[in-house]
Simulated scan of single mutants.
Amino acid sequence: MLNALEVFTTVVVGLMVGVEFSVAFVINRILDALPEESGVLGRAHGGRMLGAVMPVWYISSLVLVAILAIAGWGQDGAGLLATAGALLIVSVIMSVLLLVPINNRSKTWTPDNRPVDWKEQKNRWDRFHYVRVAVIIAAFTLLTAALT
């Protein structure tokens, strides 16, 4: 049973990392290369869509890693799992405090109602997102190292 939980957790966290990496280094670059109006609409749609899914995904990933850390406490890899969980907590805190406020504004933007500083806000979100991606990659790395 624990092996199945380890595999499931690895897949859930790995897919989350992959999606967030793709947003940072593929999707947003594509949207930025589109005409400005299309890029604004694309980011707003992505913000609405992923903004609804990612909170559940982040919390689920954290809970799964915490369960593994508790179940394996005192065994090899437990410290790595605890550290991975701590990094996922950092990613959730970063999301709530830094990224979500910008996302909540930008997901309503259209070419007609975007604020004057929309590019600065977009760039700030991107910079925070790069850091968050690095944090969750580190968490995923620790998770996989703990389980192998």
Rank of each mutant, 00 (worst) to 15 (best):
Y58G: 07
Y58F: 15
D112H: 02
L98R: 14
A66K: 02
A134C: 11
E6N: 07
V12K: 04
I137C: 12
F21W: 15
A86E: 07
V17A: 14
V133C: 06
V56W: 11
L80V: 00
L97W: 11
L15W: 14
A33M: 03
A24W: 07
A69Y: 04
G14Y: 10
A71F: 04
A78G: 06
E20S: 11
A78S: 15
L142P: 11
V26T: 11
E6G: 01
V12D: 05
G79D: 09
V96L: 13
L5S: 06
R132S: 09
L98K: 14
T10G: 15
S91P: 06
V53Q: 07
L31N: 02
R114W: 03
T110H: 01
Q121H: 01
T83W: 09
V40H: 00
I137F: 15
A4C: 03
S106D: 06
L147P: 02
E36A: 01
V96K: 04
F8C: 00
S22V: 07
S91W: 05
I137H: 08
F128Y: 15
T83V: 12
R127W: 11
E20D: 14
L68E: 12
L62A: 13
P111S: 05
W73M: 09
D76T: 13
V40P: 02
A78E: 07
V7I: 15
V53D: 03
D76F: 03
I93T: 06
W57C: 06
A139V: 05
N3P: 05
W125R: 06
N28I: 07
A66L: 15
M1Q: 09
G47W: 00
L142F: 09
A4S: 12
F25L: 12
L34Q: 11
V90C: 09
M49E: 03
V40C: 04
V135H: 04
V133I: 14
A134M: 12
L64M: 15
G47N: 15
R124W: 04
V13P: 01
R105P: 02
F21P: 05
V12F: 11
